[in-house]
Amino acid sequence: MAPLFALFWVLLSGHFTTLLLVLGALSVALVCLLARRAGLTASAGASIPHALRLPRYLLWIGKEVLVSAVAVVRRVWSPRPDLRPAVAATPAAGMSELAQVTYANSITYTPGTLSLDVDEDQVHVHSLVPADLEALRAGAMLRRVHRLDQGRRAGR
């Protein structure tokens, strides 16, 4: 974790005087200490190959966000908004903790769906119209998160 923080400091500071580098080293040490005390030692399964698969997922989620944001904006401006909120659990079994967080956050990040609660093997989702919930259940996003987690071979 420490190299990441050090890189972050150098990127944001951009100065290489002794004083600032020492201050940076102290900050990195302090943050690592605090993170350890808070029980955040492991990197939760993030790795270099994982990071390499990330851009493709980000492009896809960006497209999804734009498409569904347009749909929600239509509802905002329509004279009588077509709102039929639905709440249901969608399956999310057999995922690492990181994948579960990615999935739940992606659901919330996409306008129109909102994750309310994350269980061991499912996510409770609130959606503006039932169609969004059905699209989620069809599993396109779930498949992509699985692929992000395990690579193409295991992701099917």
């Binding site: 401006w77 909120p85 306008p111 909102l114 503006l128």
Partner: peptide, 22 residues
């Protein structure tokens, strides 16, 4: 506008979500 127009808390979270993401 959605934050003001939508009928309850959960739907308003969706409206706030558009500004956060898109």
């Amino acid at each position: 506008v959605g934050l003001l127009r939508f009928p309850d808390f959960y739907t308003r979270v969706h409206a706030a979500g558009i500004t956060d993401s898109a």
